[in-house]
Simulated scan of single mutants.
Amino acid sequence: MDAVVVDGLSMTYRVPVRDGGLRAAARALVRREYRDVHAVHDLSFRIPAGQVVGFLGRNGAGKTTTMKILAGILHPTSGQAQVLGEFPWRRHNHYLREIALIRGSQPIGDAPELTVLDSFRYQQVLYEIADAQFRRNLAELSELLDLDGILQRQVRALSLGERMRAGLALALVYRPKVLFLDEPTIGLDVSAAKTIRTFIAEYSARTGATVLLTSHAMADVESLCPRLILIDDGVLAFDGRRDELSSAFAPAKLIRVVVTDDDPDLTPYGDVLERDGNQWLLRVGRDAVPATTARLLSRFAVADLSVEEPSLENVMDQAFQRLRRTRDIAS
């Protein structure tokens, strides 16, 4: 069963524009001019229940707009979207109790004078969670996110990492079935970000929740998302597994090799990216990897050899560059 179905989704904003200067500002008071901004255009994809999917793109690609539509905050210009069989923008109460939109830039509620536990109690009342269920959910979330030490503290006194952990638990205390995560680790240190990633993986595994995650931190995507959806300028550019993304946009692999020969020269075997003594890192075309490794093994005394995919960050950079060139040619 598909938890999320997006079919031909488009979103166009009409935004005011004017030239600079006082004269243009005065003229705009009488007659405003507008232009259309196409944030999302004819976007289609499906996400089966329980799947964790990375939703990637550059700033302004349409990721957050799409998530806001799926969470029921925005109404699309055209096309359809269904989440758990519901049209999100109808904002039925029973639907809003099944989903959560979690933004890293807004980690926990708007009442900083409350304690963390008070915030949870308010959430219990808002979502009409039975006492027994609330206690079980809070105990589980406290264990997974190490909240016991901050439950009695005011929200205003929490560090950013603590606010993120508390905000994530607050959004999940009513056990939503679909999570829309928008930059969930933004601004966090390495340890706090790892805690959040581990929790998301465990929460999805325990509850079967469907997760659509957008992040510029590739560590989030690599550790959580076997499937990636890439959009560019609001248009679907890729939908598939991580290794398929590498094959589609990164034409080379990396060969890391250690040889024991005296003064070896490996420059004829690929592009040399790094060299430290007898340790070499070569970039080689995908089709040439088998032949190149065979030549290296037959020519040199090889102590160690490994073939690696380029980093996801490198693949994404190459993908964006290719998409930009394609768009420039088309225009």
Rank of each mutant, 00 (worst) to 15 (best):
M1Y: 07
M1E: 15
M1A: 14
A3E: 06
A3Y: 01
V4S: 02
G8I: 05
S10N: 04
R14I: 10
V15H: 00
P16K: 01
G20Q: 06
G20R: 11
A26H: 05
R27L: 09
A28H: 07
A28N: 07
A28G: 06
R31W: 02
Y34A: 00
D36K: 12
A39K: 05
D42N: 03
L43E: 04
L43M: 01
Q51P: 03
G54N: 09
F55C: 00
T65C: 06
I69H: 04
L70C: 00
G72D: 05
G72L: 00
P76A: 11
T77H: 00
G79K: 00
V83P: 03
G85T: 12
G85E: 13
F87M: 15
R97W: 13
A100D: 10
A100G: 08
I102S: 09
D110V: 14
D110G: 15
A111C: 11
E113Q: 14
E113I: 11
E113H: 14
E113K: 13
L114V: 10
T115S: 14
L117E: 15
L117Y: 08
L117Q: 14
D118I: 00
R121F: 06
R121P: 07
V125W: 14
E128Q: 13
I129P: 14
D131K: 14
A132L: 09
F134E: 07
F134L: 08
R136N: 14
N137G: 10
L138I: 02
L141R: 02
L144C: 09
L145A: 04
L151Q: 00
Q154E: 15
A157M: 08
S159D: 10
M164V: 14
R165E: 00
A166I: 05
L168S: 10
L168D: 03
A169R: 06
L170M: 12
Y174M: 03
P176M: 08
P176V: 05
P176R: 06
K177H: 13
K177S: 10
E183W: 14
P184E: 03
V190A: 13
K194W: 10
K194S: 13
I196S: 07
R197A: 12
T198R: 15
F199L: 01
A201C: 07
E202I: 03
S204N: 11
A205V: 01
R206N: 12
T210P: 12
V211S: 08
T214D: 01
S215T: 02
A217Q: 15
A219S: 07
D220T: 07
L224I: 09
L224T: 05
A237D: 04
F238W: 04
G240T: 01
E244W: 06
P251W: 12
I255C: 07
R256I: 12
D261G: 06
D262H: 15
L266R: 08
T267H: 05
L273P: 12
E274P: 02
L281I: 12
L282S: 08
V284S: 08
G285S: 12
P290S: 10
A301R: 15
A303E: 15
A303L: 13
L305M: 10
S306R: 11
S306W: 03
E308W: 05
E308M: 08
S311L: 12
V315Q: 05
M316T: 07
A319I: 06
A319E: 00
D328W: 11
I329P: 01
A330E: 15
S331Y: 10
